[in-house]
Design a protein around this nucleic acid. Structure first.
Lengths: 212, 212
DNA sequence: ACATAAACCGACCAAGTGGTCGGTTTTCAT
DNA sequence: ATGAAAACCGACCACTTGGTCGGTTTATGT
C-alpha cells in the first residue's frame, strides 16, 4: 500500500475529530471567552468525553494554540489580507474589504477581525505563549497592509508623501475599535457612520493634484 | 450632635474600607480581567478577609458595579470628556486629549479609555447587568463628543457639511483600536503614527475654504 | 464601665476547573 | 476470525471559585 495513503488513512479519523473539536472550541471561546469556557463545555456540545480530548490534545492551552494556527490565522488571511493585496488600487480594496467584513459583523456572524481583537484583549498580560501567536497574526496583517499601501504609492494611487506605516496603524486601529463599538447598540448605523468617515480618511491618502 | 456629622462618622470607616477595596479591585480586574481575578486575590492584597468583603458588598458582581459607578465612570469623565468640552476649537482639544491619554498608556499607567475597552470586550454577551452600566458610560462619552463637534460647527471650527455622529463614531473607534494595538509591541512608535494620521483625519473636518 | 452595633475573621461548603488513568469499544491489516 | 493499535469513555483527583455563617474584635454613645 502506498505509504502516503496509509498515513492519510491513519490520520483521517484523527483529523476529523480534532477538526470538529477545534471548530466547536473556537465558537465557544469566541462567544464566552477562553477562561470562561471549560473543556467540558466543548465536550458536552459534541457529546465527547474528557478521554477523547486529552487523547488528541496535550492541554487546553495546546488546544487553543492549534485553533489559532489551523483556523484563526487562515481566516484572518482570507478575510483581511487576501481581499486587499493584489489589486491595483489599495484604497478601493481596503474600503470594500472593511465594508464586507463589517457586514458579516452586522449579521452577528463570526468576524475574524473581531475574534482577533477579543482574544488580544483577553490574553494580554495573562498568557505569553498565546499572545505570541496572536501577535504573529497581527504582525502579518500589518506587514501586508503596509506593503500594499507602498505598492499603491508606486502605482500612483497613493500620494508619495504618505507615511504607509502610520496609515496602516490608523486603519487597523479604527477597524479594531469599530468592532468593539458595533457589538453594542445599533451596529448597522454605526457601520454606516464608520464607513462614511473611513472614506474621508482614505481620501487624504490620495495623490494631491499638483498645481503646475 | 449634628445628625449629618453623625452619619458621616458612622459611614466614615465604612467608606474608607470600601474605597480601598474598590481601588485594589479595579487595579486587579484591569490587570488580570474580572473572571480571572478572585475575590481572595483582592482580599490578600489588602490583608482582609472574606467576612469583610461580604459585609460591605452583596456579591462580586455588585462590587464591580460599584467600581464602575464610583471609579470608572468618573475617571472616564475627567480623562475623556472634560478635557474636550468647553474649549473653542474641538479639533484642537480632541487632538490634545487623545495625545495625553495615549501618553499615559505609553508609560503603562492605567488609561481609563483602555479599561473601558477591555471590560466592554470581556463582558459582552456574558453579563447583561454589567454591560448596561458600561454602555451607559460609552453613551455619555458619545453624546458629549457629538455635541462638542456640533458646537464646533456653530463656532466655525468645523465644516457645516460634517456628519458629527459619524465623526464621533470614527474617533471613538480609532481610539479604542489604538489602545488594543498599543499594549502589544512598540507602543510609543504606534502612538506617534496614530497621532499623525489622526491629525490628517481631523483636517478633513475643518471648514473648506469656499472659492468666492 | 458597659452595652450595643458595626466591622472583621476564617473555617467551611457546594460547584466547578483542568487534567489523569485504567479500562472498553472501533477499526483494520493480516 | 484475530490481534493489536487507535479512539474513546467516565470515574476520579487536587485545587480553586464565589459565597455563608457563627463567632470575635473594635469603636462609640451614654
Amino acid at each position: 500500500m502506498n505509504p502516503n495513503l496509509e498515513i492519510m488513512d491513519k490520520t483521517l479519523k484523527r483529523m476529523a475529530t480534532m477538526h470538529r473539536m477545534q471548530t466547536a472550541g473556537l465558537e465557544l471561546f469566541y462567544a464566552n471567552g477562553y477562561y470562561a469556557t471549560s473543556v467540558d463545555d466543548i465536550l458536552n456540545k459534541l457529546s465527547l468525553s474528557k478521554g477523547a480530548f486529552y487523547y488528541h490534545f496535550e492541554s487546553k492551552e495546546d488546544f487553543f494554540v492549534q485553533i489559532i494556527q489551523n483556523l484563526l490565522s487562515r481566516k484572518v488571511y482570507s478575510c483581511l489580507i487576501e481581499p486587499i493585496e493584489g489589486f491595483s488600487n489599495p484604497l478601493q480594496s481596503i474600503n470594500s474589504c472593511f465594508e464586507e467584513a463589517l457586514e458579516t459583523a452586522v449579521h452577528n456572524e463570526m468576524d475574524f477581525g473581531c475574534v482577533l481583537n477579543n482574544f488580544l484583549t483577553e490574553f494580554r498580560g495573562r498568557n505569553e505563549v498565546i499572545m505570541k501567536h496572536l501577535n504573529e497574526i497581527l504582525s502579518i496583517w500589518e506587514v501586508n497592509l503596509v506593503s500594499t499601501l507602498q505598492k499603491g504609492k508606486f502605482n500612483g494611487h497613493i500620494d508619495r508623501h504618505v507615511d504607509c506605516e502610520a496609515a496602516a496603524t490608523y486603519l487597523m486601529s479604527s477597524y479594531f475599535g469599530i468592532r468593539t463599538l458595533m457589538v453594542g447598540a445599533a451596529p448597522s448605523a454605526r457601520k454606516y457612520r464608520f464607513m462614511s468617515q473611513l472614506k474621508m480618511y482614505l481620501k487624504t491618502l490620495e495623490p494631491k493634484k499638483v498645481a503646475v
